[in-house]
Design a binder for these strands. Structure first.
Length: 502
RNA sequence: GGGCCGGUAGCUCAGUCGGUAGAGCAUUUGACUUUUAAUCAAAGGGUCGCGGGUUCGAGUCCCGCCCGGCUCACCA
């Protein structure tokens, strides 16, 4: 018999023993008086004498993280919400059945305890247990107490186990939640309303990407999982919802990497009557405050660097190429980066604009460790942005970079329907030449624009990448609870349980 | 998709030149009423990712496949 079978059998036997003692092996409800975190926060400053003189009783619950039994007494650590407190159970201090229960406890069981607070000889704040409650049985063994769960694949597949084993992992996802609530709070305080637009779309658009396809049975139509909410959000601005935002998933049928997951979370917001310059100022404040709300400071450690979100730099794309040029001897000047011949020397892309973007990506992108806004993008790569009045080869568009990654993309929205129709026509042409990522004609979107889209600034911020930076995570999978993995194959647990059921 | 690395007990990991598969934690039994990686004594636990091949003999060498990580490419 394998160990795991043996263990399962033992634990199921314990379930029966616990029941025989008069406890429910799987509890229904437990009204604790405080969380463990609250107990620690309130009572950690108190000295042993104070605790003894002013007895404080609490009722707590959590998962058993350690057990140290010593004959007629013992210690254990209970963990809840990433915090833990020691409990002390002695035979002569609890009802007889409670002590028998204590002897049946396994690591990972969820229990409740009533008792009073005290300090042990070594000074650790602990609960002197007077009554035990059993709340839920664990049938499988916990990860090793010292190293925790290290196997990356298991951590992603069984995130619940990762969360049990590592308070740091809980912390990452708490921080992620704080990021999202900070963004919501900031947007709401500026009059933005949260909306939800279709995730299943008959036409997909708003980005250059391949979609996932799904099917609706009754209507018998194929639908696409959205690659971006952009075109729907702008319809809402046409309708008079002048400040809207959506925080939700986008789906792009692409490979995975440390910076890409096929489903990822994006904040998109649209503000009528502003432009990309207004959005730049807003973005800087938004990111600064989010960093503070998430980490306590606008200055954030990321891997080997220290990123300062209170001082976001700004360069035009041309300036960035000059600034980050690797070799002082060949560094271009302002005339060079605007010169088609110079651009051709350094890139084989078909147009001047694409050449500039290509050079920028190779020269500058990875060096944009400090939070940086890059603005004024060539029109060729920006099909939904308004062109610059002063130079129609460029658009009123910027992207935000940090830690060498793109984390945001924003522009003054194109709001001339005739121009938008021309750009769709251009995309259709690209599509016919085999570009699977080119936009389809979205005639309803054109129709909406024909009713008049006010001047509008729109922006998208990649929540996962922002969460990576603000939690100092190297891989996007470390900030997504259940990243996409190939299926793992049969587990065999149902069979085992079936065979052990009496 | 290419390159590199990995998959051995529930967990964390060793495993030499191809020669009886190991440790710590966890588990089981016993001792122990302020321990804290508790301690002490003993025991049980293995489809060495899967499938072939070479060999008297394969965790180890060869081939194929599966799963994962890093990286390049693709991709914003």
């Amino acid at each position: 018999m394998s160990l795991e079978d043996e263990l399962l059998k033992q634990r199921l036997e314990r379930v029966r023993q616990i029941q025989a003692l008069g406890f429910r092996p799987y509890g229904h409800r437990f009204d604790f008086s405080e969380t463990i975190a609250a107990v620690l926060q309130t009572h950690s400053p108190r000295a042993a004498e104070d605790l003894d003189a002013n007895r404080t009783t609490v009722r707590i619950c959590g998962r058993l993280q350690t057990i140290r039994r010593m004959g007629k007494a013992g210690f254990a650590h209970l963990s809840q919400g990433g915090k833990q407190i020691q409990v002390y159970v002695r035979k002569d201090a609890v009802p007889e059945k409670d002590y028998e229960l204590y002897q049946l406890l396994d690591l990972g069981d969820i229990i409740g305890a009533d008792g009073y607070l005290f300090r042990t000889r070594t000074g650790e704040l602990s609960l002197h247990v007077e009554k035990l409650h059993f709340l839920s049985k664990t049938l499988l063994s916990m990860p090793e107490k010292w190293h925790g769960l290290e196997d990356v694949e298991t951590r992603y597949r069984q995130r619940y186990l990762d969360l049990i084993a590592s308070a740091d992992v809980q912390q990452v996802f708490l921080t992620r939640a704080r990021i999202i609530s900070s963004l919501r709070r900031q947007l709401e305080s500026r009059g933005f309303i949260e909306v939800e637009t279709p995730m299943m779309q008959p036409l997909y658009g708003g980005a250059a990407a391949r979609p996932f396809v799904t099917h609706h049975n009754t209507l018998d139509i194929d639908l696409y999982l959205r690659i971006a909410p952009e075109l729907y959000l702008k319809r809402l601005v046409v309708g008079g919802l002048e400040r809207v935002y959506e925080i939700n998933r986008n789906f792009r049928n692409e490979g995975v990497s440390t910076q890409h997951n096929p489903e990822f979370t994006m904040l998109e917001f649209y503000q009528a009557y502003t432009d990309y310059e207004g959005l730049m100022d807003f973005s800087c404040e938004l990111l600064r405050q989010t960093a503070i709300d998430a980490t306590g400071s606008a200055v954030v450690a990321y891997q080997d660097d220290t990123l300062d979100f209170s001082a976001i730099r700004r360069y035009t794309m041309r300036e960035a190429v000059i600034e980050f040029w690797p070799d002082a001897a060949t560094r271009p000047n302002e005339a060079n980066v605007a010169d088609p011949d110079w651009l051709s020397l350094h890139s084989r892309q078909p147009s001047a604009g694409e050449k500039l973007v290509d050079i920028f990506e190779r020269v500058a992108e990875r060096k944009l460790i400090q939070p940086t806004i890059i603005y004024d993008y060539p029109v060729e790569t920006s099909p939904l942005s308004k062109t610059k009045e002063s130079d129609p080869a460029f658009t009123d568009r910027f992207e935000i970079y940090a830690a060498g990654m793109e984390i945001g993309n924003a522009y003054t929205e194109l709001n001339d329907p005739q121009e938008q129709r021309r750009r769709f026509d251009m995309q259709i042409g690209m599509r016919e030449r085999g570009d699977e990522e080119a936009h389809q004609m979205d005639e309803d979107y054109i129709r909406a624009m024909c009713y008049g889209l006010p001047p509008t600034g729109g922006e998208g911020i990649g929540i996962d990448r922002l969460a990576m930076i603000l939690t100092n995570s190297k891989s996007i999978r470390d900030v997504i609870l259940f990243p996409l993995l190939r299926p793992e194959g049969p587990i065999g647990l149902a069979d085992r349980l079936r065979s052990l059921e009496l």
